[in-house]
Design a protein around this nucleic acid. Structure first.
Lengths: 160, 160
DNA sequence: CTTGTTTAGTGCGAATTCGTTCTATAAAAG
DNA sequence: CTTTTATAGAACGAATTCGCACTAAACAAG
């Protein structure tokens, strides 16, 4: 199963990344209330980690998904009372997304539920390996993101 | 933006992985014929890399998606003449999936189109870093997969 | 052999994701 | 200021993903 060429290694890395993403989404959803799925939590978490009051478009860029996908996710979150939206004072076209108290609480509770899972993985995998992995993944992410704008991949009005 | 605790590092790593997965899916789809999307290619590639003649259920396990999702993907691929299915001689309940010549050709063409993209990323990121990343990602993937079976996450009849 | 349980795949409807089109506003050009 | 051009979001329908119920075959127990 050894990869012999450069493309093979890249392929294998992206393949592993794809599977890990799928696995962690499944694990996350197992700790979420039934009516919520991965992307819902991703939005809540993003609003806490980066900042409240972002526009939907900014989040579409951050997650690299079409704006219509974010729009639907936000609609569900708003209906559940986990976020609220207000007009953007700086731009009449757009709006800003704010967490409600319920949204913050749900995020905290979910993270608490994930704690033991993370702890188990950290113990087996080693925290130092995670720490070592992080900057490499960051720069790879940034690089692929840049490369997207160069290689003629049509990012269209949807993505950026 | 520095992460101070273990959970934060894990979170950040999984977050980067999620974005990279999303970005590479978008990049892949930009090189695929319009009527095909990421999962279609993933199946074709898997059948070449692992082996022809797998059952749908085996692929559902490999990709960690519900069997009904794979079923739909296979239905599209079969309609496009990229795969064909035959009954499983060892098990009357299941069937085996085989690549057609058209399926092999499409995979080759797609990989050829991705070549320059991969080369660009490899040049910037460094092949050695990919090589170093791979085993870590592999073991992380295996670990999360194992952990899923332990922590009471209901993998149900769908996943495994 | 018969019965009860598990597993692979299908059918079907709901939820989600996405591309296209449209409207309103902002930004740029003249 | 007026006229283009670009952007944010909404509306809408198609494609995809998924959960649940069902069928048929394998397997285990008796």
């Amino acid at each position: 199963m050894t990869e012999e060429n450069a493309a093979g290694v890249v392929f294998a890395v992206l393949n592993e990344i794809g599977i890990i993403a799928q696995l962690s989404r499944t694990a996350l959803e197992a700790r979420l209330p039934d009516e919520l799925i991965g992307p819902h939590f991703t939005v809540l978490n993003h609003l806490v980690r980066v900042r409240d009051g972002q526009t939907p478009m900014a989040m579409a860029n951050a997650f690299q998904v079409p704006k219509t996908s974010i729009a639907y996710t936000l609609k569900v979150l708003e209906k559940r009372g986990l976020i609220e939206t207000r007009p953007n004072p700086d731009d009449g076209r757009s709006k800003c997304v704010w967490l409600t108290d319920a949204g913050r609480v749900l995020r905290e509770e979910t993270i608490a539920k994930l704690g033991p899972d993370f702890a188990a993985v950290v113990q087996s995998f080693g925290l130092d390996r995670f720490v070592e992995l992080l900057p490499h993944l960051r720069s790879l992410r940034i690089l692929i993101d840049k490369n997207r704008d160069l290689t003629g991949i049509p990012n269209g009005p949807e993505i950026s």
